[in-house]
Structure formats: C-alpha cells, structure tokens
Design a protein around this nucleic acid. Structure first.
Lengths: 216, 216
DNA sequence: GAAGCGGCTTTGTGATCACAATAATAACAT
DNA sequence: ATGTTATTATTGTGATCACAAAGCCGCTTC
C-alpha cells in the first residue's frame, strides 16, 4: 500500500502552494515582525508534511521574507531602522526606473485602472484597514510596473516589498491617518501629462514617505 | 544503530555548505548556461543525501541562480538578451548607489587594495582566464561596495551577479581581448579625487560595458 | 530516413523516521 | 521571592523510501 499517496483532489506541487500562500500573507502584513513559525505548524496548517513546509520556508528565507536564527528557528524579520532606510532607498531606485519605463506605454485604460485601484486604497485608509491598505497600495504599484515589461526588475521590487511586509503592517497599524493617498494622485497626473521628471519625483516621494512615519 | 548519523568530522549544516559551494561556482562562471544538474548528482558530489541538496537548489532557484523547468528539472539559466539588458540596468542602478555611498568612506588603504585587486584582474585578462577574470572583477566591486555599509543593497547586487554568472562566462569566454580594465582605473581615479559624478559615470559605464559585447 | 511506439531508466516530490540541540517547564534550594 | 538545576517537550536536520511523471533508447512501420 502506498502510504505516501497524495489525495487525488489535491493540487500538485504542495510546496509551491504553501510558498505562495505564506508569501502573500507576509507581503500583505498578515504577520507581525518577529512572529515565530514552525515547520510542523505550517505543515499542519496546510495539511502537508514537513518536507514541503521546509522547502517553502527555505525559499522565503532566501528572499528575505523570513529569517532563520542560528539554531534554525523561523520567524518574520524585525528590521532595524538602518535596514528600513536601505530598503526604502532600494524601492526608490528600482521603482522610479520601473515607472519611467512604464510611462511610454501607459495608455488611457491603464490610467483608469490605476484610478479604480486608488479608490480602493482610499477606502482601506478610511476604514483603517492596514492589511487592505498594503494590499491595494502594492496592487497600484504593481499594475503600473507591469507595463514596464521588465520582469527581473519587478521581481526585485517585490522582494523588497516582501521583506518590508511585517514591518509595514506594524507601521501603518500604529498610524492614525485618514487622508487619501496624495502621491498616488501625483503619479496619475504625471502619467496623464507624460511628465517623466514629475513621475520620477512622485514615485520616489510616495515610496519613501513611510520613512517620515519612523522619524517621529 | 543510528543510520542517519553524520560523520563527526563533517561540518554541520550540510545544506548550507552545498549551497555556498554551488553558489560560488555559479557566480564565478564555472558552469555554462543551460548546464543540467540533478539532486542525486549534487548529493553524490558533496557526499550528502538528496535532502540537503534539495534545500541548496531550492535556495539558489529562489535567487535566480538556477532555473527549474515545469517538471522540476534543474539547470543554470539561459538568459535572453532582454533579460541581460535588464540585469545590466539593475547593476547600474544599484552599484552606482553603492559606490556613491562608499565614496565618503573610501580612504587610502581601500584605494590601494582596489589597485592590488585590479592588477589581478589585468593578469587574468592577460592569461585569458575567464573564471579568474570574473572572480577578481567581482572582488574589485565587492571590496568597494562593502564600504557603503549597505548590506541589503549589496545582497541585491550579488543576486544579480549570481544570475549573470553562467552568461558572463559564456560572454567573456568568446571574447579575445587582452586590454586591462580601463574603467576600473577611472573608478579608482574618481575615488582618489572625491569626484562623485565621475565615480557614478565610471561605475555605470564599467557595469554596462558587457552589453556592448553582446551588440556585436 | 522520419515518425510513432514500447520498454526501461532517470529524476523530482512528499512522507516518515531517528537524532541532537534548543527552548520550556518543573523542582528545588537558598 | 529568586536564581539554579534537572527533566521534558519542541523543533530543525538529514537519511531513506515509494511513487509518478518525464526523459531516453531501440525497435518497428510506412
């Protein structure tokens, strides 16, 4: 009898499924910084054995989404202020370039879609929904950058988002703002006007504004 | 009897040892693009079972150092020209920033060390030693960037190097030059003069010059 | 010759286990 | 109460196995 048989209705590639779900939760701020995880716990939660859980964790650790202590304990990263500054600088570098490359290809339909997403961002802010804000905000940026046709750069940007996920949740969670996202409007306006310098400035400002929350 | 016992003289963390050695070989161009690997082959080569080999491969795949086909077959990446252009642009973005951050901290001892490394680069070029050239060239850049005190950025740059490793070997291997690295001298001169714009230009040019070889 | 077909082999995947090391808890003494 | 030690529970690591799917090779057929 085959004890290792996997249920026929189960999706193949168990480790990939675990990886994607964990990645989404981390990127969107579902887990606070320093949250501990265990291989057996993950396996139980996703109904797999330790093996695929280990592979998913190893992959996420390689991307900086999880940190492993010297003894192998798994947790979400707790970023120092210097690390946050670095990651914000990386976002500025990469995302300004992505936006710049997307600009010539940003037609009306894209700009309209960005506005729709931006409304969802405003709504999440109004409801003080930190996770919803992070998710829609990242969707706004990703939608724009997809037009750049630069998958390696987009992957780099998403890796930075991943690393900042838990910290962003902690930052936005303690934030008590209800203002709609001002810089997103500047980005949209620059796209509409075909204003590249304005777009670069708007993206850089939007991406690094989180630092100001830290400085207080 | 414990069948899983590991030899007492062996270093702990087998998967990490395998990871580091494979990573070094890939980054320095030891393997050509498209080179196939197997878990059992890696395990046999490093005298471990499939498990640590799998973890090392999974980690390298997450960093883009290896690609996995839909059926899970492992090989070094074969980069398209568009992907190479993107990675070169990423190098330019990140490494120019790293150099700029290192500039205020670049004292005499560092500049002298860069010159020593650069002599090794020239020697590798003279001997048409592609792997030696890649290794010393990366050592030149890493030595400079370490002064930037920006570990996340340096990690990003190294990830790009990793992805380009096999392709760089193929490019430099078919190259028949004996000129010493001209732009490295410009970098050193700009460091000595404290000339930030000149440094940025020199790094950007050095990093993207490989594209010119492709265009021919 | 080129394309289809049968088998055999290779290969990644996931489950399970033993083990060692770490963390957590209980017991105790001061 | 507090700090220390001994015991127990938890956790990651690596080895091994069964299995299915994909590659490979020789054969046949038209």
């Amino acid at each position: 009898m085959n004890l290792n048989a996997r249920p026929l209705d189960a999706n193949p590639l168990a480790h990939d499924r675990v990886y994607r779900q964990l990645r989404s939760r981390i990127m969107h701020g579902d887990l606070p910084p320093g949250h501990a995880l265990t291989l057996r716990g993950i396996g139980k939660e996703y109904e797999v054995s330790m093996t695929p859980a280990r592979e998913a964790v190893r992959r996420l650790a390689a991307e900086g989404a999880l940190t492993m202590s010297a003894s192998g304990r798994i947790s979400t990263p707790e970023l120092s202020n210097e690390r946050i500054e670095e990651l914000a600088a990386l976002r500025a570098l990469i995302e300004v370039e992505l936006a710049s490359r997307a600009l010539p290809r940003a037609h009306f339909a894209l700009i309209e879609r960005l506005q729709t997403i931006n409304n969802a961002v405003s709504e999440a802010v109004a409801h003080r929904d930190a996770v919803g804000y992070i998710r829609t905000n990242l969707e706004f940026h990703r939608t724009l950058y997809l037009r750049a046709q630069a998958p390696a750069m987009l992957a780099m940007a998403e890796t930075v988002w991943l690393q900042m996920g838990p910290t962003m949740r902690a930052l936005y969670g303690r934030l008590r703002r209800t203002e709609p996202p001002h810089f997103h409007r500047l980005i949209i306006a620059a796209l509409r006007a075909g204003d590249e310098p304005g777009l670069r400035l708007a993206v850089r400002t939007d991406v690094t504004q989180g630092l100001r929350m830290l400085a207080t």
